[in-house]
Simulated assay, not measured.
Amino acid sequence: MACFLVSGSWILTATRADATYFLAAIGAGLAVLANAAASIFNRKPRLTTAADRVTLVRAVLVASCAATTVPALFSGTAPGMPGVVLGGAAFILDAVDGAVARRLACASPAGGRLDVQTDAALVLVLSCAAAPTVGPWVLVIGLMWYAFVAAGWFRPQLKRTLPVKRLRKVIGAFQPFALLVALTPGVPGGIGKAAVALALVTLVASFGRDVVELEQSHRKWTGRHSSTELVN
């Protein structure tokens, strides 16, 4: 939190953000970090690994990216290179925390959840940043994961753990990459919109496949359970 307050304030000052939006920008960044902090404090025991600390550095970068996005949203423009650099750094570090977890054998379900939540926050922030120039439809990308989590409150089977698939990881990594392409100054608008549109199509297909897989798995489990009860 302290790291973000210092870096976020400096970035907003350096980019000459309007003082009117300063508190809103800081609040957006703190919301990102509060989510990461809640993930840590909900652990039992409350311990962090080396991989978690890399992820927390990513969370600070995402929070700083969110802070630069708020003034741009109010003015209806893209955040420019500061947002791209911060978002790009957070995107690149996504490969580091996984490598650290494997190298030091400190991977854990709690660490995986923190990593996924940070990824989702980055995609949401980048989607908000791209909305003024690409269009409001790009927000679907940023809200998709949160909608999936919310659906799990009503359909508990959607909370089940899915088998690890390389294609899902590739599609997940393509989302922030496509958004960063669209946000990078100098990239033709057509290329940026095409990249984001492709990202949305692949994301919808990926989530759709996961939902079907989870529902089918639930039906098979229910069927076996019912058959067992009849036999007994």
Rank of each mutant, 00 (worst) to 15 (best):
Ser7His: 09
Lys220Tyr: 01
Gly192Trp: 03
Met1Ala: 01
Leu198Glu: 03
Lys44Asn: 15
Ala95Asp: 06
Ser64Leu: 09
Trp10Gly: 05
Trp137Pro: 03
Gly135Val: 14
Gly223Cys: 12
Val164Leu: 08
Ala101Cys: 02
Val204Ala: 11
Trp153Phe: 05
Val57Gly: 08
Val170Pro: 01
Val204Met: 09
Asp210Trp: 00
Cys106Ala: 11
Asn232Lys: 10
Leu180Ser: 03
Leu12Trp: 08
Leu203Val: 08
Val138Lys: 00
Gly87Pro: 06
Leu124Val: 03
Lys169Ser: 14
Phe41Ser: 07
Thr184Asn: 08
Pro163Leu: 12
Arg43Tyr: 04
Val170Glu: 09
Gly112Arg: 00
Gly88Cys: 09
Gly83Glu: 10
Met144Val: 04
Ile11Pro: 15
Ala50Tyr: 00
Leu203Gly: 08
Asp52Arg: 01
Leu56Thr: 09
Leu33Phe: 06
Val62Lys: 01
Ala129Arg: 00
Val204Pro: 03
Thr55Gln: 11
Thr133Gly: 14
Ala36Arg: 13
Ala59Ser: 15
Arg53Glu: 11
Gln216Tyr: 10
Ala150Arg: 01
Val70Leu: 02
Phe148Trp: 10
Phe41Thr: 01
Ala121Leu: 09
Ala2Gly: 12
Asn232His: 14
Thr161Ala: 14
Gly208Pro: 04
Asp97Met: 08
Pro185Ile: 01
Ile11Gln: 15
Trp10Asp: 09
Val201Ser: 09
Gly111His: 02
Val211Lys: 03
Gln157Phe: 15
Phe74Gly: 04
Ala37Ser: 12
Ala17Asn: 12
Ala25Gly: 07
Ala78His: 03
Pro79Arg: 00
Leu203Gln: 13
Asp52Lys: 02
Thr202His: 02
Cys128Phe: 12
Asp210Tyr: 00
Ala34Gln: 10
Phe22Pro: 09
Val54Tyr: 04
Pro156Gln: 04
Gly223Glu: 12
Gly142Asn: 07
Leu179Pro: 13
Leu33Trp: 09
Ser75Arg: 10
Arg166Ile: 06
Ala120Asp: 09
Ala28Asn: 06
Val138Asn: 02
Ala19Trp: 12
Glu213Ala: 15
Leu33Ala: 01
Thr228Lys: 04
Glu229Val: 13
Ala131Cys: 10
Pro132Ser: 05
Gly208Trp: 05
Arg168Pro: 00
Phe22Asn: 06
Ser75Trp: 09
Leu214Ser: 15
Ala19Glu: 13
Ala110Val: 01
Gly98Trp: 03
Ala63Phe: 08
Ala31Val: 07
Arg160Val: 11
Asp210Met: 01
Asp97Asn: 11
Ala24Tyr: 15
Gly80Cys: 06
Ala17Lys: 07
Thr222Glu: 15
Arg166Met: 11
Val140Gln: 09
Leu114Thr: 02
Val196Lys: 02
Trp145Phe: 14
His218Glu: 15
